[in-house]
Nucleic acid binder design. Structure first.
Length: 417
RNA sequence: GGGAGAGUGUCCCGAGUGGCAAAGGGGGCGGACUGUAAAUCCGCUGGCUUACGCCUUCGUAGGUUCGAGUCCUACCUCUCCCA
């Protein structure tokens, strides 16, 4: 067990959130004696956050749960620059409009994990566009730029990697770390923020902020990074066939989200329970002790708890129920993802290929055809052997729907309207 | 400004003698085995088509050729060396 004196660091350490920590003793003492204000920055590069961002969100969650004050910083300004950390190539520049739209989608997530002032809590939502967009170039260079040594910046991994590999690093991106450092100091000024957290790839950026804070305001600031989470087989978290695992319900249904966690690898279950659920540690240890096929029970708990955090308890229970009827009872659950189509179309008869494309299970007729050749498509749990087969009214089940399946795991209901 | 090199299947890496829908990986998907796991093995991985076949694809635009990813010209982008 951990040796910290503060709840905050103890909880994080016990749950496996801590990778690197600057001045652990000093931060520990501070967290014990006062309310610590800490922030994490989030890029606005997509209209929703995905599971990759879940870990930092959980950091903020535990921060607040242990009596401190979280700031969720939207990167409305820095996203206009682009963080080169951990990336081989520069990203395409997003328009201001894109960024604003993305920001709206992302904001909603945080309310589910943090209590903001509007909800009677102390969490703060900030946007660095508020201070970055209006910076005066010369003033900024004189005030902030003079504290940065190019010699040292060139040694940072995010920069060095690009240079070593002879990959282009634009001046624009090169400035990212300066802006992030400035964010830290600005949040210190505005909100008394003394700690920046983030993924392990952010260590360099965060330390820059600490240095800048010392030079500009003689402030003592801290850094805490979380480990890079990969699955046991080495894959990055959050990628599936359909792409990223989104947190917004309109981009990924609670059912699919539940399924994502249900399919966790055995070796990851305990670790993920600690990181992505709020179950007490003893309970997690009990689940982690399960062996063989019993681990499936732990996976279901993981799926339901993780889904409940993002989509609510009711949606999680529904997803669990849908999965139970579909997989364990071999039945047909009306709560499976549903695609509607016209009754007239059904009367006329729909080709299987068209039906699977419409349901989103195949991207093209050709793909559907190949799936049939692979023995992968089923209509109402009956294998499709012929790509010329048609689906008609006679295929409606007693429930009035038609179940399309790709493989054993992916099911869609066609519903006539 | 001068010189050298690179851009390939819109997920990535990467081979490519003028006959190419284009080798091989990785990733992904499906099948078998299982526990909705991992590992392993097998299949698939441009669009349309029952099919013959047609269409689109190798940085962009032209050209040579029966035929161009491959040869020529110009342009764009990137890298390296010299100034």
């Amino acid at each position: 067990m951990s040796t910290y004196k503060s709840d905050f660091l103890n909880v994080l350490a016990d749950r496996g959130f801590i990778h690197q920590l600057s001045e652990p003793a000093a931060l520990d003492a501070l967290a014990r004696s006062s309310t610590v204000t800490a922030y994490i920055g989030f890029d606005c590069t997509a209209p929703s956050l995905h599971v990759g961002s879940l870990l930092p969100i959980m950091l903020l969650y535990w921060l607040q749960q242990t009596g401190h004050r979280p700031i969720a910083l939207m990167g409305g300004g820095t996203t206009r620059v682009g963080d080169p950390s951990g990336k081989d190539e520069s990203r395409r520049l997003l328009t201001g409009e894109d960024i604003d739209n993305n920001l709206k989608g992302i904001r909603a997530i945080f309310a589910k994990f943090l209590k903001f002032e509007s909800a009677g809590g102390n969490a703060v939502m900030a946007n660095n566009a508020d201070w970055l967009n209006t910076l005066n170039y010369i003033d900024f260079l004189r005030e902030v730029g003079r504290h940065f040594s190019i010699n040292r910046m060139l040694a940072f991994d995010s920069v060095k990697l690009r240079l070593d590999r002879q990959q282009e690093l634009s001046f624009l991106e090169f400035n990212y770390m300066i802006l992030q450092a400035y964010d830290f100091v600005e949040l210190h000024r505005r909100h008394g923020c003394v700690l920046q957290m983030g993924g392990s790839d952010q260590w360099g950026n965060i330390v820059n902020g600490i240095d800048l804070g010392r030079r500009l305001s003689n402030a003592q600031l801290f850094a805490l990074t979380s480990p890079l989470i990969t699955t046991s087989s080495g894959a990055k978290m959050g990628k599936t066939a359909a792409g990223a695992v989104w947190l917004n319900a309109d981009q990924m249904s609670p059912y699919d989200y539940w399924q994502y966690w249900r399919n966790t690898e055995d070796a990851d279950v305990a670790r993920f329970l600690k990181l992505f659920t709020v179950l007490p540690i003893p309970e997690i240890e009990r689940l982690a002790a399960l062996k063989g096929a019993e681990i499936n029970e732990a996976k279901k708990v993981l799926a339901t708890e993780a889904t409940a955090l993002v989509h609510g308890r009711a949606a999680a229970a529904e997803a669990a129920g849908t999965a139970r009827t579909t997989f364990e009872e071999g039945g047909l659950s009306a709560n499976l993802p549903t695609v509607e189509f016209s009754r007239a179309e059904l009367k006329a008869g729909i080709g299987v290929l068209a039906a699977f494309v419409k349901a989103g299970l195949a991207a093209s007729n050709g793909e559907a055809r190949r799936a049939i050749a692979n023995n992968a498509l089923m209509v109402n749990d009956v294998r499709v052997a012929n790509d010329k087969a048609a689906i008609g009214e006679s295929d409606l089940t007693a429930e009035g729907v038609i179940k399309l399946s790709l493989g054993r795991k992916r099911h869609i209901l066609l519903k006539p309207v």
